[in-house]
């Protein structure tokens, strides 16, 4: 009984912590504290691109959800296929299921490993593959679609090449009116003021921008894809951070 209460307490506390604070803890235990979504310093390490006068808006006309999960996904199941073979198996699975959509683009392919670690020496005693984790996103006319409710397909390929988990969120869209686009220079000024679509609470003090491009943003309960300037940077430990600014004038 004590153990179950302890478990519920730990899970609940961590989820609430994540929900409200979103401070990241690195593997060496360092806590990255944020400054409520604004930066002390933003460095632009790339020339800002020219802005098109207009971009089309896309209206969401239907939402497609599809999913599958085996009893044993994310459990140890022996050796797993290579990343390349897993990508082939994932695409074959989608095609057979009649769920291979236009505009699909690979975002993540990695072997998820379970490591046994000695907490006193920090040595890894053994490392076992669990599954190959694949995430696909969507591109519309060359522009990536991103955001908390953006189109995506996630697949896990487990032992013997079996698809053990699959989750799809995809929108049917239709082209709507064009909208005037804010120049990238103006969007960068908005970024420096913290006027972003995705407010990450635990942001690095210094953000180095290495790529800027246009895309579409999809948030909760949106009826349209919103054009957005995407600013790609890295945090202090080299993880990619993408901040988005509404690109509509």
């Amino acid at each position: 009984m004590y153990r179950s209460l302890k478990l519920v307490f730990v899970v609940g506390t961590l989820l609430i912590f994540t929900m409200f604070l979103s401070h990241a803890i690195t593997q060496d235990g360092k806590i990255i504290t944020g400054t409520k979504g604004s930066f002390s310093e933003v460095k632009l390490n790339v020339a800002l691109p020219e802005s098109p006068e207009k971009l089309p808006l896309y209206r969401i006309v239907d939402v497609e959800r599809d999913s599958y999960a085996s009893k044993d996904f994310m459990k140890l199941s022996g050796s797993v296929p290579s990343e390349e073979e897993s990508r082939r198996l994932a695409l074959e699975f989608l095609e057979k299921r009649g769920q291979l959509p236009d505009g699909l683009t690979p975002k993540v392919v990695e072997v998820v490993k379970l490591r046994e670690v000695n907490v006193k020496t920090n040595d890894t005693l053994q490392e076992l593959p669990v599954a190959v984790n694949l995430i696909f996103g969507k591109v519309v006319n060359g522009y990536p679609v991103t955001g908390p409710k953006a189109d995506r397909i996630a697949i896990l390929v487990g032992g013997k090449g079996n698809i053990t988990y699959y989750s799809k969120l995809w929108y049917e869209i239709e082209r709507n009116n064009d909208t005037a686009i804010l120049p990238a220079e103006n969007a960068f000024e908005k970024l420096k003021r913290g006027e972003v679509l995705n407010r990450m609470k635990a942001v690095p003090k210094t953000l180095k921008i290495s790529e800027v491009k246009l895309g579409y943003y999809v948030g909760k309960d949106q009826k349209y894809y919103i054009p957005a300037w995407l600013f790609y940077g890295e945090d202090e430990i080299g993880n990619r951070i993408v901040l988005m600014v509404d690109a509509r004038r």
Binding site: T18, S22, A24, I25, T26, I32, M200, V203, N239
Partner: peptide, 8 residues
């Protein structure tokens, strides 16, 4: 938990 920054 998470090993990177994330969103609420």
């Amino acid at each position: 938990g998470f090993s990177t920054a994330t969103y609420t």
